[in-house]
Structure formats: structure tokens, C-alpha cells
Design a protein around this nucleic acid. Structure first.
Lengths: 230, 230
DNA sequence: CCAAAAGTGTTCGAACTACACCCATGT
DNA sequence: ACATGGGTGTAGTTCGAACACTTTTGG
């Protein structure tokens, strides 16, 4: 046991809140659920939980993510710490927000039901408890910068995706429309995608070719000083 | 009084650590001090303190900054939360790091002495306690991105500065050397600096003109969709 | 045969890079 | 007079932005 060095200081509850983002049909989604305990039971909320003894805050976020998604080792990054005195209406809680990018199509509706969780369009957010709307806003702003310089967007897509899909993802992240030819030209010049023979015919009669992100190629390019940029 | 909603949960000490950066003669500095209490009393450390009851973490960081610098309303931004279980050797403490950019020439040595604080070159950091070196590393990486897109660098300079000074600041932040003519051309095209009649003769016989950052101009340009970039 | 999405190149202007010499002045 | 840092312009290249038509195929 360690000595009680800091016993004159105050302690706080520390929570993690997870902004779990998905993408489907030109829209970004966030996973929300109806809070299961007081205060504000039944209100819309981010997925979260308290940090437990013996668990780092990263581990806590990781645990909450696995509970909510059934998936281990998701892409996850810290958004920041939220520490206003009255941010939680119950007692004082300091929360550390994490965002995660997941492939919605892998999601089982079983897990959604277990948690009363609902994929909600970013453009149609209901009122959320506490500062959760701010957390989402901060996440989207981080994602904008991150997606421009790192290939994190692929986490939001299935293993196999089409170029129109990828483009509409970036349009959703940047909240703007992109030129098809310029977008493809840039991707082509980076040489980090593999074109498959298979086509996706869900969205057009002609069909669009599937691609995969080639992480090995990307990592090799990185070593040679290559910089991703979209 | 609020009800005890969360009484089954564990509480933690929460601290703030401040990465106070300065700039002088082509070098970035960070303010360090010798820790005044156990454990690791006497070791080099960032300026920090515990979050107190009734105080937001922003307020705590602000308070620590004011204590250490004697200046109110410094530029300050969150770096992130650090929550490894064993990061503090005393007891478990979760720390939120903030960085601040200050004008070293305004500093009174009186305040440094009071805290046993020393301006230390970033390039010559001693071994620091806990994860403080990581915090500094993270800060420098944030600063690189931030300084490229927002005029935060001016916080590190005196009110009046010269272009050679400004350039060497950016060279220190980016860890690279920049072309004098291209650097000036870019600044000129942004039209956010005011050239003064006065010259700084400290570094050359000829003297370099002083400039000031014109925040009003900058804010007006922002409204018109202007983007700072250096 | 037609609607609807996929795919494909070129041109123009802006922005970035590289580069070398004169200026002012204190000693 | 000279050493030291301050200040200035141009040419070449690269990169991003704008832009319209053909292809495929299920219905």
C-alpha cells in the first residue's frame, strides 16, 4: 500500500463518455441511449460509465466501448476532460470524453436493444443531458482535422467500400461537397487503396468497384516521409 | 444539497499540470520547478496543483497559472487527461494538462524565486517526474498544429517584436528553418501586422523594425472567411 | 430506351519553393 | 573598412479548383 500523501485534498467521481460515430448513406451517426439511472433517467445521453479503482481512464473508455459495441480494439481517441462544477446534475463528476469510429454495418441489433441504444443522425440530435452536445461538437471538430491528415475515416466504412461511398463520407465529415474527379485523382496519387474486381450494385445499375485500404502500403509510405491528406 | 446519486462509485484525486512555454533567443523554454512535497520532493516537475472542491478544472488551471506567473488571463488550452493507474507514485491521481504561452520578458524573477521555478530550454530538459515529459511532448505537437493555423505564437513574444524574431519563433516551433523572403511575403500578404517606426538594435547594428500584431484587423479578416496559415 | 449513378482529363490560376545580392550601421 | 544581421524580387514548379461528357445497365 502507498502512503496517504495527499489526504488533505478532495476527491471526485471521474467518468468517461464515449462518442461512438458511425456512417451510413451519406450521414454521420452517433450512438445514443436512454439513461438508465437518476438523475435524468430516461433522457438521451452518450454511452458512458464511471472510472473504477485500478483502471486507467483509457481502460475505462475501452471497457465502455466494448460493452456497447461487442467489439474489442476499436479506434479510439481522447477528446478532452470536462470539469465544470455543475456539469452533472447529480453530484460533481469530472468526465473524460473519447470518440470512436466504427463500422455501423457490423453492428448487431441485439446489442443496441440490450442498451436501449439508437443510432442517431448527427444532423438530427435530440437534446442531450449535461454537456454531451458540446462533447459531440468538439469531437466533430477534431474529426475534421484528423480525417484530413490521417486515414482514420476508413474505420467508419466496411472492409470493402466504393469510391462514391468514401467521397460521401468525407463530404459528411467536412460538411461540404467535393469534386468527384479531383477527389479520385488525389486518392489515386496516394496509392494506398486496392481496387477489387467485385462491384457494389446497391446504389446503381452500373455498379461501383469495391476498394480496400492497404494499411501495409500506407505504413511503408509513412516511413518514406509520405503525408496523407484529403 | 444534491442527493448522493453515485455513492457506489470510487472517487479520485484530480490535479492540473501546466506546461508554461516561453520563447527567448531562438529557443522555446518551459517553466519547471523543484517539487515541494513528497513523494519525489526536490525532483523536477511541471507546475501543478490539485483541483479543489467548487472549482472547475479550467479554474484550477487558471489559478495555478496565475500563482506561477503573477499574470491573469493568460492564453491557455487543454492538452488532455492523463489517467494511468500508476502515473503518480504517491497515490492514484488523474491529471489534466494545460499549456500556456507567455511572454518571458514580462516575467519577474521574484516570482521565479518564490516557486523555485526555472526557465528550461526544451532542448535540454532534465528527467521529469511521472508522465510530465510526455505531457510536454504532447503539448509541442499540439502547438505545431495550432501555430500553423491560428495566430497563437504572438503570445510568446513581447507586444513589439521584429520579423527575424517572429521567424525564429516559428523555426523553433516547427523545428526547421524557413526562408526569410518567403516567410515575410506570407506575413505581408496576410496584412495582420503593424509596422512601427521604432527599431530594435539589440541584435544588429542596422536594427530591425518592430511590429505589432493587430488583433482587430485579424478578427475582421476572420469574419470575411480569412484563414491564418504559417 | 431511358433514368441514374459511375467513371474519366484538361486547363487555369494561385501558392509554394528556391535562390543571391544590397543595405545600414556600430566598432 | 568591414563584419553582422536586415531587408528585398523573380522565375519555375507544383498543387488545387473548376469544369462536361461518356459509360453501364436494370427496369
Amino acid at each position: 500500500m502507498s502512503a496517504a500523501f495527499y489526504q488533505n485534498e478532495v476527491q471526485f467521481y471521474v467518468a468517461v463518455d464515449c462518442i461512438i460515430l458511425g456512417f451510413n448513406k451519406n450521414e454521420l451517426y452517433v450512438l445514443l441511449y436512454k439513461r438508465k439511472f437518476e438523475p435524468l433517467k430516461g433522457k438521451w445521453s452518450l454511452m458512458g460509465g464511471f472510472v473504477k479503482a485500478g483502471e486507467s481512464i483509457n481502460e475505462a473508455a475501452s471497457r465502455v466501448l466494448t460493452e456497447c459495441t461487442g467489439i474489442n480494439e476499436l479506434f479510439m481517441e481522447q477528446v478532452g476532460a470536462y470539469g465544470d462544477v455543475t456539469r452533472d446534475l447529480g453530484e460533481r463528476v469530472i468526465s473524460v470524453a473519447y470518440y470512436s469510429l466504427v463500422n455501423m454495418s457490423e453492428f448487431q441489433s441485439k446489442i443496441l436493444k440490450e442498451h436501449n441504444a439508437v443510432w442517431t443522425k448527427i444532423s438530427e440530435l435530440p437534446t442531450l443531458i449535461f454537456d454531451h452536445e458540446q462533447m459531440i461538437k468538439d469531437t466533430l471538430s477534431i474529426l475534421k482535422k484528423k480525417a484530413a491528415t490521417r486515414p482514420v475515416g476508413f474505420n467508419l466504412l466496411p472492409e470493402k467500400f466504393t469510391l462514391p461511398q468514401l467521397q460521401s463520407l468525407y463530404e459528411a465529415i467536412y460538411q461540404t461537397s467535393l469534386d468527384k474527379r479531383n477527389f479520385r485523382k488525389k486518392l489515386n496519387s496516394m496509392d494506398i487503396l486496392e481496387k477489387l474486381d467485385e462491384k457494389d450494385k446497391k446504389n446503381s445499375k452500373r455498379g461501383a468497384f469495391f476498394y480496400t485500404f492497404n494499411k501495409e502500403k500506407y505504413d511503408k509510405l509513412l516511413e518514406d516521409g509520405f503525408y496523407f491528406s484529403l
